[in-house]
């Protein structure tokens, strides 16, 4: 293989970035741009496909192939591309409204099929682009322009939803933690099949400080339950222990270190990852971050293409004349 030496600059387009000052999208963009050279894929083989929303402007700022599509439908377009062009590395950029409201159906189906897509879900728990209505991840009681008396809907937990949709790779990271996000991107890229990465993203304009408890020096060490494969799952103050078939949060001093759950991202049982996902509540006082689940499962596109190559290997490539003259024919002289 030829050595590809690209830099962050090679992946930066000439377009002026137009998010609001302080928007979490900036740091995610910068992290992704810095990570892409490491991906080791020629720039022309990288494609970013987004829906609609502030976050979905992302592809314009990357000097790769890109498509800013329509609201909620990026996984469909990306699926068609990834299935028909297995040589490409296809990323999906989506927001919490884009992927979980209008595009919820497409997200779950892309995940269950396990199409080779890396889906970056920018969760700011608000509709940014349309100026601040509550989203399907907003906490209940959220006061916004469209919910002056507080929102009534129970929010989605994107991680639980993805695991329920049979996702083979599910992770969570935070916009401001570039090192952590880079690690997660690395693992997602190594994974064959679809990967969903929920990224907590601050929207300083319409939902400022939504993730402060995970960022403030005073609270974050206690709030972030770090999931590292092969290591106990814990924050500075709390840890997880097995409780029957489920998991329980305990104060660190209350149990022996050896009783803590040792994280296994490859655990085939989805109920383990699902149990982990339930610790992220609206208050964000104990939030697991890292990779919830990373299991091997046949990738959709290679199966689709495998069916084709198998039948061609067995029967030879199709011949048009043979096809047209198949079945009952007769000759008029």
């Amino acid at each position: 293989m030829t050595e590809i030496t690209l830099t962050k600059k090679d992946f930066t387009s000439d377009q002026e970035v137009k998010w609001c000052p302080g928007c979490g999208d900036y740091s995610i963009l910068s992290t992704v741009q810095s990570y892409l050279p490491e991906l080791g894929v020629p720039r022309e083989n990288v494609v970013f496909i987004s829906g609609i929303g502030c976050s979905s402007r992302f592809p314009y700022y990357l000097n790769t192939y890109g498509m800013h599509s329509i609201h909620g439908r990026a996984p469909t377009i990306a699926s068609g591309l990834a299935i028909s062009r297995p040589d490409l590395s296809v990323f999906v950029i989506t927001g919490d409204g884009d992927s979980l409201s209008i595009g919820g159906n497409h997200l779950i189906h892309a995940l269950r099929r396990n199409v080779n897509l890396k889906i970056l879900l920018f969760n700011n728990r608000i509709y940014g682009l349309t100026k601040g209505q509550y989203s399907p991840t907003s906490e209940q009681g959220k006061v916004t322009k469209s919910t002056p008396l507080g929102s009534l809907d129970t929010p989605f937990n994107p991680i639980s939803l993805a695991i329920g949709a049979e996702a083979s790779f599910v992770a969570r990271s935070i916009d401001s933690d570039r090192k952590h996000l880079t690690e997660v991107l690395r693992a997602a890229s190594a994974h064959k099949g679809s990967a969903l990465i929920e990224i907590y993203q601050n929207c300083p304009i319409f939902n400022d400080g939504a993730f402060d408890s995970l960022k403030d020096n005073e609270t974050k060490e206690g709030a972030l339950l770090k999931m590292v494969h092969g290591e106990p799952i814990k924050s500075a103050t709390h840890g997880l222990v097995h409780a029957g078939s489920s998991l329980k949060l305990v104060e660190l001093g209350s149990v022996a270190e050896s009783d803590l759950v040792v994280h296994d991202v490859h655990n085939p049982d989805p109920s383990y990852a699902f149990a982990l996902s339930r610790f992220s509540n609206s208050k964000l006082d104990h939030v697991p971050v890292g990779i919830f689940r990373d299991v091997e499962r046949a990738e959709y596109g290679s199966q689709v293409n495998g069916q084709i190559s198998d039948i061609i290997a067995a029967q030879g490539a199709g011949d048009l004349k043979t096809l047209l003259t198949s079945g009952d024919t007769w000759t008029v002289a």
């Binding site: 498509m67 469909t76 377009i77 699926s79 028909s84 084709i308 096809l323």
Partner: peptide, 29 residues
């Protein structure tokens, strides 16, 4: 007729079906 290299994708709905077709077109199909 897969031996003609035909890919058929039964999507989750009509929106996904055309989205996938458009994505494939974008890729040169």
């Amino acid at each position: 007729h897969k031996k003609f290299g035909v890919i058929t994708f039964q999507a989750e709905d009509e929106i996904a079906a055309i989205g996938a077709a458009l994505g494939a077109s974008y890729g040169g199909a």
